[in-house]
Amino acid sequence: MNRRKLLGSSAVVLLVLRSRSLRAAIVKGGLPWRPGAADPPAAVTPDGWKFFTSQEAAAVEAFVDRLIPPDPQTPGGKDCGCAVFIDRQLAGPPGRYDGYYMSGPFQDGTKQQGPQSPVTPAQQYRKALLALDSACRAKFANKSFADLSDRQKDDVIKGLEDGSLELDGTDAKKFFELILKDTQQGFLADPIYGGNRGMAAWKMIGFPGAHYDYRDWIDRHNQRVTLPPVGIADHPNWSL
């Protein structure tokens, strides 16, 4: 049984075990331990969009492929799965700012006080992607962002980055920063989350991934580590 199968098959059991009432509320007489109580991540499968509409997905795939363009050695953002990564994040807890302090009143403060907006990432994407296509249609003969040439796309992205292109009803520069951060995270995070497909980004930079034992390497100064990269679920050598 490989590890991906294991992670998949244990997911159902875990849903039951994770309910709060089964957490050890009183610990007495020894370390509490139950089998199967661990909570591994669920692997993303590329089976359609969970958050984006097909039109939004087309724009995001085009966008991430300009932020990280393909080159002869390494695929671009689209083929690395960055849009899938963002889609699954937005459909899940991060898209809702789950865990954030979201009580009001909301008011803007200083830069040092950090973001204070009640608008979640999912809401920001929805608004900004609509406005992005509108802005492109107005400027480029009714073409959506995905239909632009690479040069035109780059000009639009530069406009968002430097604040010269405004988006209706949303902060264009903040949206640029958000999608850039998410794209880079998807590119470099473990492939189990849908991006970094085939560990392409890790191979590009020379990061061996989710190894946990480098005792053989700590003394080998200034030598390139030759271990093949491993992901949490994807490596063929992982097996039980």
């Binding site: 610990v27 509490p32 109580a37 661990a38 591994p40 865990g99 473990d190 989710a210 190894h211 946990y212």
Partner: peptide
């Protein structure tokens, strides 16, 4: 919550930058 190695950060998936570092 109660936390222990085998259940909260086991060797099989503890090396996860997104989950533990970025999503806290």
């Amino acid at each position: 919550p109660w936390r222990d190695t085998a259940t909260d950060f086991p060797i099989s998936y503890a090396q996860d930058e997104l989950r533990y570092r970025l999503q806290h």
